[in-house]
Nucleic acid binder design. Structure first.
Lengths: 144, 144
DNA sequence: AGAAAACCTATCATTTTACTCGGATAAAGT
DNA sequence: ACTTTATCCGAGTAAAATGATAGGTTTTCT
């Protein structure tokens, strides 16, 4: 039940972009340095976020990335879903309809209910936290 | 964020043992057949559960496994923890003290709070469901 | 004795992970 | 125009994890 670096790096990078929201394009080089991530690897991850429409890229010198939406409108759950696919502890609860595709036991499976509850509780947490929330948290720590 | 088969098989097997609790030793062969698991692989998994004290084994003909505690006293969280190690989306929240071991950024890391919340919400769900709960669920479905 | 079962160690094919490498393309400043 | 700074794109790759399988030993019941 571990998150891969894709998810962690994705959230770290998006959080970094949120901290600089409104300051023009931010280069991946600077993001990678601040967050301690391989720049080249991060490039690949940002491609996914760009295709999903969460970030916009500006090529060329002085280029970089910016969020396409306000940090209040992007949740940690959004990012994780893009980076790692739908959150689900087992494939048979990927969607509410996936039931029969993955398990012939179908409705008779009592453990399936457990995994669905786990999925929902994870999603509740992740969807309730926006990038803006993280930025607020950062500011609070800086004040101390 | 997927559970491995270790966790799933472990819960399935323990659930099977719970259904037969009080009926003497249950052979892994029968468990494996009912749950659709490789018998030989399941053997390895049961070793971990035995060492952790959740099951007792009786060797020889007519032997098998039994739970060491009442199904009400064993939670899904117990089993998953044995099979997959402590539940935590990232290593820096394995324990509340793991902070500094895994991340020099330590207290300044705002995402760490997110992972701790996810960890707690998963554990809340898993620790709240006992094997007895699953058996009750099974009976309910049988009645329909 | 013979069968059934747990127990133990080793090996292995496949997949996933977390990268690296090498370039192509694009825009800005000089 | 040229250089620099970026994003963009596809391939390759070493290491680890996963999900087993293989083959044998020991124990106990009938």
């Amino acid at each position: 039940m571990k998150l891969s670096t894709k998810g962690r790096y994705g959230v770290a990078a998006m959080y970094d972009l949120a901290l600089h929201y409104g300051q023009g394009p931010i280069s991946l080089k600077s993001v990678a340095q601040r967050q301690g991530i391989s720049e080249h690897y991060l490039e690949q991850l940002m491609g996914a976020l760009r295709k999903a429409g969460y970030v916009k890229s500006i090529r060329g010198s002085q280029g970089g990335y910016t969020l396409t939406k306000d940090p209040t409108q992007i949740t940690v759950g959004d990012i994780i879903t893009i980076m790692e696919g739908p959150i689900a502890p087992v494939d048979c609860v990927l969607t509410d309809e996936a039931e029969n595709t993955y398990c012939e036991r179908a409705g008779a499976c009592v453990t399936r209910g457990v995994w669905a509850k786990v999925r929902d509780s994870i999603n509740n947490v992740l969807d309730s936290i926006s990038l803006a929330d993280l930025c607020r948290e950062d500011k609070k720590q800086g004040d101390e």
